[in-house]
Design a protein around this nucleic acid. Sequence first.
DNA 1: AACTTCAATGTAATCGATTACAATCCTAAC
DNA 2: GTTAGGATTGTAATCGATTACATTGAAGTT
Lengths: 332, 332
Amino acid sequence: MKKNATVKDVARTAGVSTATVSRVLNGDSRVKGETVDLVNRTIEELGYRMNRVAQSLKTSRSLTAGVIAPEFSNEFFMNIVTGIEAELNSKGYSVILCSSRESTAEEARQIELLKDRGVDGIILIPESDRGDHLGTADPLPLVLVDRTVNDPAYDAVLADTYRGTYEAVNLALDEGAERIGFIGGDIHLSTARERYEGYKDALTARNLVPREKDILFGDYHEESGYRLMRELMEQSDFPRYVFISNYFMHLGAARYLLENSALYEGLHILSFDDMPLASFFPYSSVIVAQPMVEMGRRAAQLLLRRIGGDRKDFPLTVKLQTSIRAVSPGIT
Amino acid sequence: MKKNATVKDVARTAGVSTATVSRVLNGDSRVKGETVDLVNRTIEELGYRMNRVAQSLKTSRSLTAGVIAPEFSNEFFMNIVTGIEAELNSKGYSVILCSSRESTAEEARQIELLKDRGVDGIILIPESDRGDHLGTADPLPLVLVDRTVNDPAYDAVLADTYRGTYEAVNLALDEGAERIGFIGGDIHLSTARERYEGYKDALTARNLVPREKDILFGDYHEESGYRLMRELMEQSDFPRYVFISNYFMHLGAARYLLENSALYEGLHILSFDDMPLASFFPYSSVIVAQPMVEMGRRAAQLLLRRIGGDRKDFPLTVKLQTSIRAVSPGIT
DNA sequence: AACTTCAATGTAATCGATTACAATCCTAAC
DNA sequence: GTTAGGATTGTAATCGATTACATTGAAGTT
């Protein structure tokens, strides 16, 4: 197993100094053309590859970014990560992916670990709206994506889900709905809160007051979607319209409806996130789609700007538009 | 923005040498108890955190592993990655996640990049069964997961999908099926080939010869599942049993069936991967489940062993069992 | 011819940790 | 009181790249 060549080897073989080799490596224009060629030929010849670790140590830039998501087995987050990775990779950056396991403590720990590992910046999908522990990242640039925290001191790339919800609910109201159930996420998530506000405001704008039993909160996971849907449907007089705040709860709700094949005459489901088949879920009627990959991409772009030292408009919040899709009632 | 403390600072403040600090940091037993305490107190006091980059450079171990998957927005792969990350993280390792974008060239490139970044080992979900370019990883340990390559020189953690398929098909045959359609993946993937073999062998064992038109190959993506399902169903006399080789093709097939709400009297779908709702897809009747997270976990364990220098049984292929679930016919 | 200038390259310190080897301190034995 | 030998600790080289500063040489100026 022969050792990898180093700048020193290249320098010796080419008969120049390590400084010159390094200059060629970094495209320093002060090196004479012939020398550049000579060095490049030698590099080729020796199969030299730069030791990035040494480079990082010396320059304190690693061309690596950390990404922290609450969990991996989550299509939604992974679509965002896809966008992040595509953008960063195209700019020569690698991604260290960590899971916060939906725990604030773990989130804080991962930030520290990433810092120790010398990443140049961090993109975070926060686990809750509390941001007290995020100061740890300092002085590294930190960009939030999908969700934001109460502390307004961070860049964030979000989807305008307030508006998405408002409009979707409005669509139902236009159709004549007067009673719309609501299945929400944990109110400590900015997105869950926004959607709730959007729903409430849309009703209020028409002087409608929802019944208390029609508004239920869960945790964005399938299981709670299942449970809450059951809770709604088991009312002797269930609402004919139900808004579900995210895809996984929608999934759970769909499972409930499929398992209990009673016919829910006239049921309409409004839901979030345009995942494969979502439009075929039972009674699916309106879907609010978020630009998942694009959010990731934009977050990565913003992070790269910050890494580059651009502090313009800090802290910046980017809001991307959602889009609404009315679907023909699905599987019943 | 005050600089981070270094071993040197700690050493100076504590009045010892850097060697001693380093020894304490690494739990060297030769240091006197009091000194250990003193150093630890100083570390605490200065808020010292070790620079892992410098450590990596010196020790050439980074406590980092690379993971390459064909794509991110893929629940199946991400379940595997979840297992990998959980296992590695619990052992103090971080994960650099890269996408090969389903391209061999990109796969090779990512391996090189990971090597440059100084990872201690690589876990790869190969993009095809060609393994010529994997030698690049040498001398880093490389563990394949989910799929393997023709070159038998690598560790691999796989699911026994040959057997899973065989048994699922057998179940259908026991029920009296005599004609079973097959929707397969790209034959250049070990898993796609295995499943095809399992299907064929199960039929052959009962002296059944499938019609040529009943056997179709796609590429594991939703779109091809949709297309192939249509192709099968548009036969005037379509097969009453159809085996679908993976979840995404199943998804596409389900979409086809839902969009074309003709009643396919007596249709039974056998399929791979127990994802949420899969059992509710139209005509779903048998599902072969792979231990996705467990595969990831085992691959990580194996990688850690190899990183630790344990060459026992190299190259080792671990085959995990699949499990079969008969489900009541789903959405129709 | 002497001197300035600039282009091209080299020398050597440096990033922050680890570790081989050297040095020192104690304790116990004679 | 010496000294062998283990227990602790310190010194300084090292990992592989970058870069401030020094040096060299040749062209341009007067």
